[in-house]
């Protein structure tokens, strides 16, 4: 590749993503997709969330998706949001009205099937958990964490973060001199997902296992009880959905072809814009 000189008009590609990062990324596309959708089906079996150790129908739920005779609703605390058509009460592909929390197009399986949703969820959980573990080990060894994800003190100063927000607004995501480096907001969000959201979603998942609670009672103390763990599990899942939405939006804004190429082959075209 170095032997053939590239034409002047064609900018040189830079190697941006290591193989382990790329593999983990695509494994997660599959694993997170299945975990989220099978998780929503499991949630449908009891669409209420509680704080503390216990929580069932007679107890106060801080979040609930339900339906009256005519309307679907999402209730958070004392706030009730009408959600007919999307949450609580919706119509399926054949026009039947269904009173259930999340609609069929968002769940695996699409019809109500708690047992199979659990089998999807608890099988693909291995991919998510051990994928994260292997990626973390690889990223320690190949120094991906240290080189690309270490947040320097000057990066988290308010002025720097504000500058980064303004750069994002102008769709400038990378410093032309260091096209391989993640920008600050990118680093912060990746660090939050890799070191907070994913580990917490896995540990709160384990806390819902009665056998794990017996063996590792510290799980219950860490999250404040099994029902708190279930609530935190759901909040983490929601955080993942927000992250994915922003992530995909930014990929589209930054140039989807180049971004997809860099996550598949590792090679990326550096930005052309002048130094901000």
């Amino acid at each position: 590749m170095d032997e053939t000189p590239a034409p002047a008009a064609k900018p040189r590609l830079v190697y941006r993503h290591r193989l382990t990062t790329r593999i983990w990324h695509w494994v997660n596309v599959l694993a997170v997709f299945v975990m989220l959708m099978s998780g929503l089906m499991i949630f449908n079996a009891h669409p209420r969330l509680y704080w503390g150790e216990y929580g069932a129908n007679a107890d106060y739920a801080w979040l609930q998706i339900g339906a009256t005779r005519t309307e679907g609703y999402l209730r958070v605390g004392s706030l009730e949001i009408p959600t007919t058509g999307v949450l609580g009460r919706w119509s399926d592909g054949e026009g039947n009205i269904v009173n259930r929390a999340f609609p069929g197009w968002a769940t695996i399986p699409s019809g109500y099937d708690l047992a199979m949703a659990r089998r999807w969820h608890l099988t693909f959980a291995w991919l998510l958990a051990f994928g994260l573990l292997l990626y973390m080990l690889a990223s320690l060894i190949n120094r991906h964490f240290k080189r690309d994800l270490t947040i320097r003190r000057d990066e988290v100063r308010a002025r720097h973060i504000w500058a980064d927000i303004k750069a994002h607004a102008r769709l400038r995501f990378h410093h032309p001199d260091r096209p391989n480096a993640y920008n600050t907001l990118q680093k912060l969000s990746y660090v939050a997902i890799i070191f907070v959201v994913l580990p917490v979603v896995i540990l709160t998942g384990l806390t819902m296992s009665p056998n794990m609670d017996a063996a590792w009672p510290w799980l219950l103390d860490l999250f404040g009880g099994r029902q708190s763990a279930r609530s935190i599990h759901f909040i983490c899942a929601a955080a993942l959905v927000v992250f994915i939405a922003v992530h995909v939006l930014l990929v589209v804004l930054a140039g989807p072809v180049n971004e997809m190429r860099s996550m598949i082959t590792g090679w990326s075209k550096p930005p052309k814009e002048p130094t901000p």
Binding site: I42, F43, A45, H46, R48, Y50, E53, Y54, G55, A56, N57, L114, R118, M208, P210, D213, R226, Q227, R230
Partner: peptide, 12 residues
């Protein structure tokens, strides 16, 4: 003890 239902709720 805590009774954990497969549906997701718990009661002690």
């Amino acid at each position: 003890t805590r009774h954990d239902c497969v549906e997701g709720w718990s009661a002690i």
